[in-house]
């Protein structure tokens, strides 16, 4: 057996765990259009490199969970999180801080959309006709595709989504949600308003088949969060330099990647309501 053990150790040691020279790494998952991430955010990395005077790299990730993991492991020091994922990440990395949010993120909202064959009409309040319908959220960790819609649904109906609807699914993505509701695979769905507006503009949505029936109140969403220990690694005042660089990002092609019209200052406290909501619906433990 000792021979076996030696072999195992050898093989595991030989696995490539290449560490890179110290560079400042960030990640971002935009709420719409995740294609060509490397190319689009490569430009943002170039901009930050120029502004910060250290090498800045971008790594693409697939999910909020992956972004949080990378942030916690210090594989990335800066991340463009959704409201909920930012809260989760800051809980895991003490000292980390929300630096800036998109202009639009100050008053973000979600749409509840429905297939027109359901006969559900736009309304100022959630209708009881929703009960028993099939319903899809977006990704499980999404603020606009799950957390806030779920919160308002629970608040209005006084029950968990599984109890309100005949079936509850997670499409995994806002575009998917729209496609599924449009095709009638699900009758009702919750979607990020920005993605809806964008797809509507691009002509991907057929208004005769799917329509917005309710809009949530506004809430804070996406934000830049930085680890607390960056000053120690990259020099005193680094965090503030990052914040300044983000707030001064004005070039439209850079901002289009997110897509946001500009960035405005943000703080951890801005996301108190999100954290409270996540606790209220049991997505965060105390």
């Amino acid at each position: 057996m000792s021979f076996v053990r030696r072999m195992m150790a050898l093989v595991l040691l030989a696995l490539p765990a290449w560490a890179q020279a110290e560079s400042f790494v960030f990640t971002a998952i935009p709420d719409a259009d995740e294609s060509r991430l490397q190319q689009r955010f490569g430009k943002v990395a170039d901009y930050l490199t120029e502004q910060l005077g250290v090498e800045v790299k971008y790594i693409p990730v697939k999910s909020y969970a992956a972004a949080i993991t990378a942030f916690r492991n210090n594989q990335v020091q800066l991340a463009w999180f959704g409201g909920l994922s930012g809260v989760q990440a800051r809980r895991l990395v003490p000292g980390s801080e929300a630096l800036a949010q998109g202009y639009e993120d100050q008053f973000f909202k979600s749409y509840i959309i429905a297939n027109t064959r359901t006969g559900l009409a736009p309304s100022d309040s959630l209708s009881d006709a929703l009960k028993g319908k099939t319903f899809t959220f977006g990704s499980k960790g999404s603020t606009s595709g799950r957390l806030m819609p779920e919160f308002y649904l629970r608040e209005h109906f006084g029950a968990a989504p599984e109890a309100i609807f005949g079936r509850v699914g997670f499409s995994g993505d806002h575009s998917r949600t729209i496609a599924q509701v449009q095709a009638g695979a699900y009758e009702v769905g919750a979607v990020n308003y920005a993605v809806w507006e964008k797809e509507l503009e691009e002509g991907k949505i057929d208004p005769s088949k799917v329509t917005v029936i309710w809009t949530t109140p506004t809430y804070p969403d996406y934000q830049w969060t930085v680890r607390g220990d960056v000053d120690a690694h990259f020099g005193a005042g680094f965090k503030e330099k990052v914040r300044a660089a983000l707030l001064e990002m004005k070039a439209p092609d850079l901002l289009a990647s997110f897509p946001r019209q500009s960035f405005v200052p943000a703080s951890n406290d801005d996301y108190g309501p999100i954290e409270a909501t996540a606790r209220a619906i049991g997505l965060l433990d105390d």
Partner: peptide
């Protein structure tokens, strides 16, 4: 081996 992606910014051996 040559084609394997580089690992960006990971140095602390994880948690």
């Amino acid at each position: 081996v040559w084609l394997l992606p580089e690992t960006a910014g990971f140095s602390n051996g994880g948690y």
